[in-house]
Design a protein around this nucleic acid. Structure first.
Lengths: 218, 218
DNA sequence: TTACTTTTTTAGTCTTGTCTAAATATATTT
DNA sequence: AAATATATTTAGACAAGACTAAAAAAGTAA
């Protein structure tokens, strides 16, 4: 249906759209895709011809409904494959992204449906990100950044904001994973660092760390 | 490492090499790949540059050791994915080929190893074809064509020679699948047709059918 | 408003993989 | 061996997707 490259652009625009109220800029896409602005312009014209984006010269782009639907289906495939890799093939959550980047382009609706069923219809991927349903709607979850908790509060880790390998490795090394309970023992107002308890371990983490960890509180 | 297209050519040459004692001809590859002879010539030059084939103008090609190893690894991935689709996702054996054609190009050695383990190291795919090991060696199996059996003999279905969708559908419709026991009740010498028993059902099949079904006898 | 900077687009080129049409090599007949 | 047929390669073109360098538009500052 669409080329791998077209699908990657749609995905990039979809992710960028959540942060910009206006249309997404050419340069923003170029940075996200690790490519040149001129290549982006070329592709935007093609996507516009196919009615996947609304593109006005010098004004950035937005996805059409068809574009959104397509992007959601790619994200759906990506996240389902991530669940598969972690749950069934015992990969750790910091290893699966690159492989899922390839698997998300496999074309077969039946395959995706069967995979979804095989995994028992998961609603969130190993990073805690929501898996859109077939019709493109994203499930919601009550999540809050660890950095917003006060001393004495606690919650269960349900996701990360920064998905970089270095951050995920840091979490692994410190025993922080999905489902782990984290309590805030004390908070240093000067630099926003927190003293927390993870399982039985006490540790101090910087504001940068705590503002990239999502918890579910009760 | 190699492009999808390069991998597909290697696979095609690998399969064709088993039938021709000499080098594989340009036209044979073109037919197998559903493309034009001129496109094949172009690609053969590229593969020769990369030391994957031995190519002499007008004389056809053979795979180098590197070429054979690469082809075997692609076939390995293809067949492991087919096992996965049938065993884990409940696809039938006539539906999996196209999807596996896509999955075979996913690059991740770790993924293949984990998949192999997850499937409990299968030696044959759902069509009964051998799955090469990591080092590229193919397992052997004592198999014989149904058409070579005499009246009174029987065996267990372990594979097919013709893998076309129409043939596989015919088998499905008639209750013939891997692991099914087939007995030869009578043989008509005039046209080579056989009266056979499949489970509790008696039926008559043509020579064309019986010469495309592999059985394991004891 | 004019001058300067940044962003975006255009124009032209490159690579990969494909194609058609024409040329050349090999195979087969007579 | 010459004539014909078939197989293969070459030459030139095209589409997709990316790039560089230059031009044009938009944004910012004096």
């Amino acid at each position: 249906m669409y080329s791998d490259s077209e699908e990657n652009y749609l995905k990039a625009i979809f992710h960028l759209e959540r942060f910009s109220k206006e249309g997404v800029s050419t340069n923003a896409i170029a940075e996200q895709m690790q490519t040149k602005a001129s290549s982006v312009t070329d592709m935007l014209k093609k996507l516009a011809d196919k009615k996947l984006v609304n593109y006005i010269k010098y004004q950035g782009v937005t996805l059409t409904n068809q574009g959104k639907k397509t992007a959601a289906s790619i994200i759906r495939k990506h996240r389902l494959w991530e669940v598969f890799l972690v749950e069934k093939l015992d990969f750790s959550w910091d290893e699966v992204h690159e492989i899922a980047e390839q698997l998300e382009h496999i074309a077969s609706e039946k395959l995706v449906d069967r995979l979804d069923k095989h995994l028992d219809f998961p609603k969130f991927d190993p990073h805690g990100d929501p898996i859109p349903s077939k019709d493109g709607t994203f499930p919601e979850r009550n999540k809050v950044l660890l950095s917003t908790l006060k001393a004495g509060e606690s919650g269960i880790c349900v996701g990360v904001k920064d998905t970089s390998t270095s951050f995920l490795k840091f979490l692994d090394k410190n025993g922080i994973a999905l489902g782990i309970t984290i309590s805030v023992l004390d908070r240093e107002e000067f630099d926003g660092s927190l003293e927390i308890k993870v399982g039985d371990e006490k540790m101090t983490i910087s504001q940068l760390i705590s503002s990239n960890l999502y918890l579910k509180t009760n």
